[in-house]
Design a protein around this nucleic acid. Structure first.
Length: 281
DNA sequence: AAATTAATCAACCGCCAGGCG
DNA sequence: ACGCCTGGCGGTTGATTAATT
């Protein structure tokens, strides 16, 4: 991480930083500044852009609102489904969850959860609480054990999900609408189905090359247990579970990020830093 | 139509991890 | 090793809008 520019930093401290909603003029200044200078040290951006904001505010505005490729449409039923599933698995890891929803920010997901889903889940009991029965769902903490989870799961009793039917409808009916195979959603974080150039990196002699380094956050260490479980979902499993368009896992290939399911180049990369991994199967 | 309440969401705050001098 | 700094994250606030009374 580069150190900050002292000159810019001093300037920004002297400035009386504006707070509150951003005006269109401010947005324009920030956009043109980033277009001109690129993304660098956020503490330097306000001075360069002529904004009386602090760098943190600029960063937030850019990431949550101005950044290209953001999707500000209402959440689709499949996106909602993904949020519910991931929240039940990962807890309030909004940035992680957002990485699985193209064009969505952590803030957006978090807001949606807090305003739309949380209360419904409280009211709706099991229907929205989790894809798994509460008695079988281990808490998702850093101590979370996938082995324990796998052992506690009943073997493949799920029915195919119906993504077009929103979770709201499911909640209204008051029953569990989905019974999912637990580990799949997690595997897709780091298992690539197809190499964009036709080569499956899982079959590479050297395991995963540095270009295909997979991502695991520090809190995901126990995910390694999944590897030891020798369980690998098929393409069909993943697509049936989440739909090609909605659930995506991303892998870095050099400078370009590809969607693991569709192979389509995307701009919303799930940066993965820790690899390679050895697969047992 | 006005007042009140609820819902939404952009933005802020504080904390933490990690890099650098 | 230590302190300072940035970037990143999750929790929270508060202004605005919509719905209800």
């Amino acid at each position: 991480m580069p150190m900050n520019c002292r000159k810019c930093e001093k300037k920004s401290k002297v400035n009386n930083c504006r707070k509150g909603l951003w005006s269109p003029e401010e947005d324009e200044k920030l956009k043109s500044c980033i277009n001109k200078h690129g993304l660098g040290n956020w503490s330097c951006i306000p001075a360069k852009a002529g904004l009386q904001r602090n760098g943190k505010s600029c960063r937030l505005r850019w990431l949550n609102y101005l950044r290209p490729g953001l999707n500000h449409d209402t959440f689709s039923s499949q996106e909602v489904e993904t949020i519910v599933k991931l929240q039940s698995l990962l807890g309030n890891k909004w940035s992680l969850i957002a990485k699985h929803l193209l064009g969505r920010t952590d803030n957006e997901v978090k807001n949606y959860w807090n305003s739309n889903l949380r209360n419904k889940i409280m009211k709706g009991g099991e229907s929205l609480k989790s894809p798994f029965s509460s008695s079988k769902l281990p808490q998702c903490t850093s101590q979370f054990s996938f082995s324990a989870c796998l052992e506690s799961m009943e073997p493949s009793t799920k029915e195919p999900t119906q993504p077009e039917r929103g979770v709201e409808e499911s909640a209204a009916k008051g029953g569990r609408s989905q019974q999912l195979s637990f580990p799949k959603i997690l595997f897709t974080d780091w298992i690539s189905m197809e190499h964009p150039e036709g080569q499956n990196p899982m079959q590479a002699d050297e395991g995963m090359s540095s270009n295909w380094a997979c991502s695991m956050s520090s809190t995901d260490v126990s995910w390694l247990e999944l590897l030891q479980a020798s369980y690998m979902p098929s393409d069909e499993d993943l697509i049936r579970e989440f739909g090609v368009g909605e659930f995506r896992s991303h892998f870095n290939h050099g400078e370009t990020v590809f969607d693991a399911v569709s192979g389509v180049e995307t701009s919303n990369g799930f940066q993965m830093s820790q690899g390679p991994f050895v697969f047992n199967n």
